[in-house]
Amino acid sequence: MDPEEATKTEAVETYKAYWLEMQKLYADSTGKKANLKRYAASSALTSAEPGSTGLFPE
């Protein structure tokens, strides 16, 4: 596989995995079942974590 195509494929797979983790997070109000740190960083992770105004406002 062409290196550029391999990079695109990896990016798409990571994106899909992120949204699977987000589904776990939405399903669990404690937010403990999701492993978002594996797929997100910086503001994407901060806004998705429980307690942020992104998903679970306190």
Rank of each mutant, 00 (worst) to 15 (best):
Y18P: 00
S43M: 10
E4I: 12
P57V: 13
T9I: 12
A40V: 03
F56H: 12
A48Y: 05
R38V: 10
V12G: 00
A6W: 00
E49K: 14
E21R: 02
N35Q: 14
A40N: 02
N35L: 10
M1S: 12
K32Y: 05
A27L: 11
A41E: 13
P3F: 02
Y39V: 08
Y39S: 02
L36K: 02
S47C: 15
F56S: 09
E21V: 01
G51N: 07
P3Y: 02
P57M: 12
K16F: 02
L55H: 06
N35T: 12
W19Q: 08
L36D: 01
Y26W: 11
D28E: 04
P3W: 02
K32I: 08
L25H: 08
P3D: 09
T9V: 11
S29W: 09
E4Y: 06
E13V: 07
T7Q: 15
L25P: 01
T46I: 07
T14E: 12
L36W: 03
P57Y: 13
A11K: 13
F56G: 03
T53M: 09
F56Q: 06
R38M: 09
M1T: 08
T53R: 10
K8S: 04
E5Y: 06
Y26K: 13
S43N: 12
Y15L: 13
A48H: 10
V12R: 14
E21T: 01
Y15N: 06
T30P: 02
Q23G: 02
G54F: 10
A44E: 08
A41Y: 06
S29G: 05
A27E: 11
A11S: 10
S29I: 10
S52V: 05
P50Y: 06
A44Q: 10
A41L: 07
G54M: 08
M1Q: 05
E21K: 02
L45A: 04
Y15D: 07
E10V: 06
L36M: 08
L36Y: 05
L20Q: 01
T9L: 14
P50I: 12
S43H: 13
K33T: 14
T7H: 08
K24I: 03
K32T: 14
E4L: 14
V12N: 04
K32V: 11
M22C: 05
T30M: 05
A17F: 01
